[in-house]
């Protein structure tokens, strides 16, 4: 319980045995009274066992679906178990659970609250095509939301019961669909979206991708996803 609301922390994890234990322990330490659900997205390593030993409930997918697939499962769980708030946190330790109460406070006047980098807090830097994609996404979506959204691809977010029910039935599997398209759809349906500035940390384990070719591909995909999402009703 946080502010009298039942809160579920959903952590989608794919081959994150190296970091998931610490992530779960940290969440449980910082946010007593919340329930942690780790969605093991068909990992080949020990992710599920490590997460269980750290005290999380684990839902194991039989094969890899992608972040979007893992998230819909998380929201289905949240819906069935009657949670009021669902918070999504990455398994690599980039998201600091100490911001979660701030995200949940934001739910008082929005249905979806995004924990955003580039919003003043922390010193996360991106350059080149990746930067342009984020500028484009943030420009279009901020106008739709009528409030500043600087980091729409952030996987650090909280949503209320209405959106838990929406996401349990509908959550895109595609890469970027899970972040960008959900924001578009939620805005189209008339819900409010807002953001809370957060600082991101370096990952506990694993390496981020830095190849320029991938960054260009990312820009293309972001543009394509956005166009498709906007063309839908």
């Amino acid at each position: 319980m946080i502010n009298n609301r039942r809160v579920l922390i959903i952590v989608p994890a794919w081959n994150e045995a190296g970091s998931i234990g610490d992530v779960v322990r940290e969440i449980r330490g910082e946010l007593p009274g919340t329930h942690v659900l780790v969605v093991d997205d068909g990992s080949a390593d020990d992710t599920a066992r490590v997460a269980r030993e750290a005290g999380a409930t684990v839902a194991q997918l039989p094969y890899n679906l992608g972040v979007g697939g893992a998230m819909r499962l998380g929201y289905r769980y949240a819906k069935d178990a009657g949670y009021d708030v669902a918070v999504q946190i990455d398994a690599d330790g980039q998201h600091d659970p100490r911001y979660v109460p701030k995200l949940i406070d934001g739910l008082q006047d929005a249905s979806l609250v995004i924990g955003a980098r580039f919003a003043g807090e922390g010193e996360y830097q991106v350059r080149g095509p990746r930067h342009w994609s984020m500028v484009m996404l943030s420009f279009v979506l901020s106008r739709m939301a009528r409030c500043k959204l600087t980091d729409t691809t952030s996987g650090f977010r909280a949503c209320d019961r209405a959106l838990i029910e929406l996401f349990a039935a509908w959550y895109p599997v595609e890469y970027l669909g899970d972040t960008v398209e959900t924001v578009v759809r939620v805005l189209r349906l008339g819900y409010r979206v807002s953001q809370v500035p957060v600082a991101m940390r370096p990952r506990f384990a694993g390496v981020p991708s830095k190849s320029p070719a991938k960054a260009v591909l990312y820009l293309g995909r972001a543009f394509f996803t956005l166009l498709l999402a906007l063309s839908r009703r």
């Binding site: 997918l61 094969y63 697939g69 289905r76």
Partner: peptide
């Protein structure tokens, strides 16, 4: 198949909650 995979994961999670290891 995605829906089925989710269904299986939910059932397995529920089972393991009922009989804690």
């Amino acid at each position: 198949t995605r829906t089925l995979a989710e269904e299986i994961a939910l059932i397995r999670a529920e089972l393991s909650e009922r009989e804690p290891a």
